[in-house]
Design a protein around this nucleic acid. Sequence first.
RNA 1: GGGCGAUUGGCUCAGUCGGUUAGAGCGCACGGUUCACAUCCGUGAGGUCACUGGUUCGAAUCCAGUAUCGCCCACCA
Length: 906
Amino acid sequence: MAELPKAYTPRDVEGEIYERWLAADVFAPDGAGSTADPRLPTFTVIQPPPNVTGSLHLGHAQRTAVEDLMVRHARMRGHAALFLPGLDHASIAAQFVLDGILAKEGLDRQSLGRERYLERMRAFSDSTRHVILDQQRRVGASADWGRLRYTMDDGSAKAVRAAFERLYRDGLAYRTEALVNWCPGCRTSVSDLEVIATPETGTLWSIRYHLIDEATGRPEPDGTITVATTRPETILGDTGVAVHPDDPRYTALVGRRVRIPFVGRDVPIIADDVVDPAFGTGAVKITPAHDHDDHATGLRHGLAVITILADDATIAGTGTPYDGLDRYEARRRMVADLETTGDLVSSIPHEMVIGRCQRSDDVIEPRLKTQWFIRTQPLAARALAATREGRTSILPERFEKTWEHWLTDIRDWNVSRQLWWGHRIPAWYCPDGHVTVSAAEGGPEACVVCDRPAAELAQDPDIFDTWFSSGLWPFSTLGWPDATSDFERFYPTAVMETGYDIIFFWVARMMMLGLHLTGTEPFHAIYLSGLIRDPQGQKMSKTKGNVVDPLGVIDESGADALRFALIHGATPGNDQRFGTVKLENARNFANKLWNAARYVTGARPVSLAADIERRLPDARHLGPGERWLLSRAAATTVAVDAAMADYAFGEVTRLLYDAIWNEYCDWGLELAKVRLTDESLPAEAREATWWTLVDVLDTYLRLLHPVMPFITEALWGAIPHRASDPGLLIVARWPGVVEQDLLIEAQVGALIDLVTEIRNARSSARLPAAAWLETQAVVSPALGPAFEALRPAIERLARARPLHRALTPEALHAASRPGDLAVIVGGGEIEAAVRPTAVDDGTEALERDRLEHDLAEAEGWLAAARERLANEAFVARAPVRVVDAARAREAELADQVARLRDRFER
RNA sequence: GGGCGAUUGGCUCAGUCGGUUAGAGCGCACGGUUCACAUCCGUGAGGUCACUGGUUCGAAUCCAGUAUCGCCCACCA
């Protein structure tokens, strides 16, 4: 038992506690300090590995808090609980950061070259990796640091190679030339998910193309067809013009040819029902190499595919003066040139949607490239089956619809990236173009087709999309593809927690890859967190300057307050606004708990030694207050268990806040104080009271530990323990369920109401707070013993002394005088007359006002209750239970009204 | 264009399966130097649960529609 400092200073508490946990080796499910029960299933939480170059923001903090809460809860329940920490190399994001740093040094990727660039990246990431890990520790993450993994470590590399080889062998990875999303800024292709549809106002140009006179082979000066386009520069790649087959304006032109401006190419006019006759001119230029729609149309009609853009999105290879110009400069000049020739018919503003790069914000250019793809439909089917069959559940449920929709309409996943930082694609090509995919660490020994030696093979220069390696995370971190003991023991995992914003990027990919590669769903539950927003509901961003630094918060208010506040507002899938108000509330709660514990430890009866071993309170000496506290703790335990089972972590914090502040502190401690200081009681009784306070505090500290691990650990260290308890709360057992005592709860509840009503009467009558009030009370016979036992406490809390007990209402009425304040509890279990020591006229008037108000209110409720019961349909059709409750309510209200009226009319 | 969500006292949010008088924190009003806590204690005011219609004995809760706000998905040049 440690002495508690008077003031709660989270900083002092938290640093020291984390070190103690580490020293005790309790984070690892198989660590020296583990108390896991081998008969229980393991419990593993998957967290999204943060970027190796990143630092903690509030979103991380919330997720870490939620993940840690689940792990701590499971650990206390005896499961071998694994919170596996990790880092992600974040290919494109990390390159973006490093490129920024290089730019300040006047360097760039290209001038460094691949090898030197990667060296820089390794050095850079080595220098930043500790940052976010340290920050997670500050939040209190009870992660098994010995199992720390990184998506660029050898294990991940092996998993990546094995996964790709397997997918290739199974026909689920293929290489083909296709139109991909090309980011000219990042100089790489990106997946469909990384293209952000951005509404913009562009221009719709109408341009005349001249028909070819087939007799002469020359364009007709007056025979034209007008096409509408938002991208005139792609004229250079046009290989057709399309119209709707049923469009009477153009029926005669289908099959004819037109000459493309600038390039002098003659292309056919085709009919295809993708064309909307109502849009633009009803005639569309077709550029198969630079537009997804046109590509498909071109394929249907056998049109040529002509690429006109280089990797940096300059015009290239068209043999026109526009070669070498950026696409937008080329566009500007071409429009001007068309105007000169008289073939520009019109230009009007046009609302459109532009695809931009998620990372660099550049306009994405569809480009033809030979790349690796993952065939997703068969994989998606298995992922859908897993959720439909309930092997994996999604929280909140509504995201199942989003999930269904995306996985049903899924398109193949382009996994090649023309970047350097990441896993190189394990595919080799021989001079004859044969493809060899190999998972071997050193690559293949020879071409699988023609047996040429490795020396003659060239490895694909591309790397994988960073999400490919993250998609293997739940099993690559446990040793897959090897059948390690960790993989056997902890896979599949229990819960995967992440933000709903990466459900497709990450969650869906883990499910698809996990199901195919391991044969099992990688997790049984998907818990989707919401986003943290500022108090105005805005997204937090550096540019807006509304970012809250969690480390600053921890320094000031403590990790416990931060965790409590974040978890308090966490409803799965819902964003939360977060600001100082919530934080203050959480900090105040921590302070309250600290002081309550300080009171309890300081109130130990002198008959008990300071280092005494924990005892159960002696049942023979329990008073109503003690029994009430024990019963309420049992009720709270049941409620917390239910909320935990529902992943309703916000509800857990609310339940514990109420139980600790409004029950334990406000009433439990206040009732106990009287007994603890009552020298007339036997020592055994005072000891029983104290042991009750200790017992209930112990229960609440355990229940609260997953939310506020530091302060609960510190306080738990200050109360007596059993010899069988472990040394630290983090590995102590979660409270078991104890039966409630509903009778005592009702009785003490009525006495609490009596105190509240007397206080109310005092306040309404504007009597001085310090004045003692003489009070007479009639108490229902059932309440008698509890009333007598708690009388001293009620006197003190209500400041009513002496508190007489009249045996009958008649006696009470006979004794009461004008000016007495009337107090009626509930349905009349208690009726009391409160007498101010000095009555003046004002008091009496105020009391009449209060009575009148109460009477009117009670009469209103009574009328409503009677109306309800007067409804025959209600009595006939509602369940008996509900009708009985309504009748009881009516009787109670009738009694209350009668008593109030009696008082009022007297 | 499709889909999803939100709308509850001044503010931020709970509200499980439809069932007593819809809860909390902050804020507000009034009152408090009682030996755990002023980061506190006590009392109180404040809500036609966005709107309309329906189902039901009974609706904040279920259904349909409307409005406002937000998000996701989407190849109309």
